[in-house]
Amino acid sequence: MKKSVILGALTVAGLAAGAAGAATLDDVKARGKLNCGVTTGLVGFAAPDANGEWDGFDVGVCRAVAAAVLGDPAAVEFVPTTGKTRFTALASGEIDMLARNTTWTFSRDTDLKFDFVGVNYYDGQGFMVPKALGVSSAKELDGATVCIQTGTTTELNLADFFRSNNMEYTPVPIETNAEAQQQYLAGACDVYTTDASGLAATRAAFEAPGDHVVLPEIVSKEPLGPLVRHGDNDWGDIVRWTLNALIAAEELGVTSANIEELSAGTENPEVNRLLGTEGNLGEMIGLDAGWGKAAIAAGGNYGELFEKNIGENTPIALSRGLNAQWTDGGLLYAPPFR
């Protein structure tokens, strides 16, 4: 029994490492499907809708990449991952890319051998408590029991925050957002802490969101973005520039409504290059000329994805804040398409 476990582990490791070296683009094309790692369910970011179709802000990135590479935004196999399993899934080649509220950190980018291709949501860690507790600041949380998802940066920030403020707490480690929500609502913990966007999404799903407050303190920087395995730079480029295409499209005013019209040719050469009517950008990354157009048409540009999934008119009601275009005082800044 023990022997077979070792054998299994070794073969898996062997196969896994083998897959990591190969060209992901060829694999995806041969398969005809993109394997994209997402959350196990966080409404607004990635969750199956009533018809079982995956939908959300992170899902939008997966679909854009599938559209750019395979020409079909539906050609995606969504693989739900927890905070714990996501990195193993990516490192082992089970998924081609991960778009799961994942914070870009030094050690993940270097030691864990991944490449973050950009940021699709600038976030920070916050705290949510029931209004009835009468807490108004995170500094009043001494002695509290705190629900956290394991395998996250949240866990480490939390330890740092309480230690630097000389406070004590009891961590309740939990695997998925759904379980955390259940524990929190049952009062098994006083506080739920995770990325502020995640808190907003979780709270929006409550029966009585008004009974819970998100405390004003944001205790960390959480730049969330898609990532790929380190080593396959060609594939990394494709995912990076697909994300950039979505961001640039918003800046350049390309939307899902006017994209057909614009792709007939415009006065703006950058729009033309982005949509493949001018230049040969597609060829440079090994895709069709229409890759950028397909990516944007999949679910709209960055702004459209934001508004549709997590924007102010959705129950999650996040404002653009840091995630506005640089031209509007935000941090989004796509490098030039040329």
Binding site: A9, A13, G83, K84, F87, T88, A91, S107, R108, D111, L112, K113, T150, G151, E155, L156, P173
Partner: peptide
């Protein structure tokens, strides 16, 4: 096998 593995990436 959980948090340490995950935070250091030292799965094997």
């Amino acid at each position: 096998g959980g948090i340490t593995l995950n935070q250091t990436g030292r799965a094997i």
